[in-house]
């Protein structure tokens, strides 16, 4: 008999490999603002904050897409709940980030619970379509919200305060706060993936019939993961509103939902760190290609096709091929 305590199994080794990849990413993120300042290009700090916020959302989507095989095409709705939580609470004079985050999480949890419970009755492409439909419902709800600018959205007068402190006033403060939240949420997701719950979720992805045959009802685990993912995405929305200082339904259009999926696939599904890198790659490409040509979406499309052809496992797959990250076998 082998030792029951010393089972550092193959997938676990891949997991610790990914922990290292995430650590490298976070160090690079931390070094970016001083670098931008040295290059006299502080504008990058604001773009950086946007990237970090999307990284949170992409990672949250990966939790259900990568680990639960639930392809949500309506995740931008949660970004929207986060941004509007800031706008609406601010209009009531509530500027505290913590309260705004709690409100965003509460509304997202309810929306995810209801729409998830309905969506999970379907599978595959139907699940994609129905989550898209719910996402569009949320989108049109905020378009009709004329008190907050309807289609045009509404500008924010000031950034949120953190427990009375003006932590987010400077772009640096906002950047590092967002980074701290990303790191904290990454640790949370990483723990979840390695927990009892995470193992059940991954098992359901691999073979739901087998899981039922040993006593698990997939639905309740999938729904729980769906809700957690929605709530984390809402936090990304809160930070995004502070970055843009502007809130509109555009944050929750189906294009955004599609972009989130692209980030996850680009980075490598089911890796957590991958989609963070995917968010960086997608948004930087958007910046650069957008500056080069107005047809940048075409180039981006070509890039995506090449990526899928040559590295179906995304950036993570590329790194594995280069021997930097460890393969899962």
């Amino acid at each position: 008999m082998s030792d029951a305590t010393a089972t550092l199994t193959a997938p676990r080794r891949a997991l610790t490999g990914r922990l290292k990849a995430a650590l490298v990413l976070f160090v690079l993120f931390a070094l970016m603002p001083p670098l931008a300042a040295a290059l006299n290009d502080p504008f990058y700090v604001l773009i950086g904050t946007r990237i970090l916020a999307f990284a949170i959302a992409a990672m949250a989507l990966d939790l259900i897409l990568g680990y639960g095989a639930m392809v949500s095409f309506g995740h931008a709705a949660y970004l929207g709940f986060g941004t509007y939580a800031v706008a609406i609470l601010a209009s009531w004079g509530v500027n505290d980030l913590v309260l705004q985050i709690l409100a965003a999480i509460a509304i997202s949890a309810i929306f995810a619970l209801v729409t998830g419970a309905i969506s999970l009755r379907t599978k595959g492409v139907y699940f994609i379509m129905i989550t898209l439909a719910f996402g569009q419902m949320a989108f049109f709800f905020f378009i009709s919200l004329s008190a907050y600018g309807g289609d045009d959205g509404v500008a924010l007068m000031q950034r949120s305060t953190v427990l009375g402190m003006d932590l987010l006033k400077s772009d640096f403060g906002l950047y590092y706060t967002t980074l701290a939240i990303l790191v904290a949420l990454f640790v949370l997701c990483h723990r979840i993936v390695g927990s009892r719950f995470g193992r059940v979720l991954t098992g359901i992805r691999e073979n739901p019939t087998r899981m039922e045959a040993i006593g698990y009802s997939p639905f309740r685990y999938q729904l729980t993961a769906f809700v957690i993912s929605g709530c984390i995405t809402a936090v990304a929305g809160v930070m995004l509103a502070n970055q843009a200082q502007f809130v509109s339904p555009a944050f929750m259009s189906w294009h955004r939902s599609g972009e989130l999926i692209v980030m996850v696939v680009l980075g490598g599904v089911g890796t957590l760190a991958g989609p963070i890198a995917g968010a960086v790659a997608a948004l930087l490409l958007e910046e650069w290609l957008g500056a080069l040509s107005e047809h940048w979406k075409l180039f981006f499309g070509v890039f995506l096709v090449l990526m899928v052809l040559f590295s179906p496992r995304g950036i993570t797959g590329l790194l594995e091929k280069a021997g930097i990250a460890r393969r899962q076998e």
Partner: peptide
């Protein structure tokens, strides 16, 4: 795990 205790545990490392 299915027959022993809850699977709604989100933090401890199950592999250990």
């Amino acid at each position: 795990q299915a027959r022993e205790g809850s699977s709604f545990r989100f933090f401890g490392t199950v592999a250990r």
